[in-house]
Amino acid sequence: MGLMAAMKRGLELHRRAARESLEQWRQRPVANGLTTAVIGIALALPAGFFILTDNLQAVSANWQGAPKASVFLVPGAPTASHEATARAVEGMDAITAVELIRPDEALEAFEKAAGMSETLAMLETNPLPAVVVGEIRQGLASADIDRLTGRLAALPDVDEVQVDREWLQRLNAVVAMVDRISLLIASTLALAVVLVVGNTIRLDIENRRAAIEISKLIGGTDAFVRRPFLYTGLWYGAAGGLLALFILMIGLLAMAGPARELAALYDGIQPPGGPGLSSALTIIGSGLALGLAGAWLAVGRHLAEIEPR
């Protein structure tokens, strides 16, 4: 047999196995619908988490603006001390610009921003301290920023130093945490998909025992007997993947409004993106791979047991 003829035969065998398994698959809409739903949900959940962490990572990576250090002086520190501190901060290497906010300026800004002039008017003295805000040179290592914070805190009359990278660090920590949780959920659910497909195909094999026996009897190879079940696994994976995409789309539509508002509150942050083409392909691809894995599991365990009488 020539190579071309052999390839033609191989293709014919695959074409037929794919078509027949698809026909049989479509003949059991309810049972297949349930299995597909389980796979779809199991794929959609971790995919949703991954999209969430993707967006959070984009937020922390695209965050614009130089980090700032706010140096709060002790309340009631003399005006001369304000100026001295501002000069001292400005003199540091890691600081590129300095702004001094005097207590009365702070009070004025607070009144405007908060609209609490009446309440503030009741206070006899201005409770706000002076603040020196220094812009930190970008690209500073975390340890350098720690050292800088220490030097700022050691200046005379300084009450407290706040570096606004802390919320970024917290966000990164949360993202890393969510990422790890997603990975755990994804692995657990991937295993669930493999087992669900495996069990469904095990029942399928049991139902078609007679056909398998007869195939083996008249010269069907193991590959021939195995093939339609592997395709069935692929169909489950593909259908589950498509359903997962559908679930994700609906979820993202439901989230779109609130997410846009949230993004608008933080300047310069992009509104969240949905699953792009590559994510969609990844979801479908995962479905196919897990479906095939489940089918292999079932076929490997159960087909060998069936020998013609």
Binding site: K8, R9, G10, E12, L13, R16, A210, A211, E213, I214, S215, L217, I218, G219, G220, T221, F224
Partner: peptide, 23 residues
């Protein structure tokens, strides 16, 4: 006989040819 009851006569007879990958 060992025929497959869920397939018609044609498909039963065709099975060995399908297994052999005939067109």
């Amino acid at each position: 006989h060992r025929l497959l009851d869920d397939r018609n006569v044609f498909d039963n007879v065709a099975l060995p040819l399908i297994i052999a990958g005939r067109g």
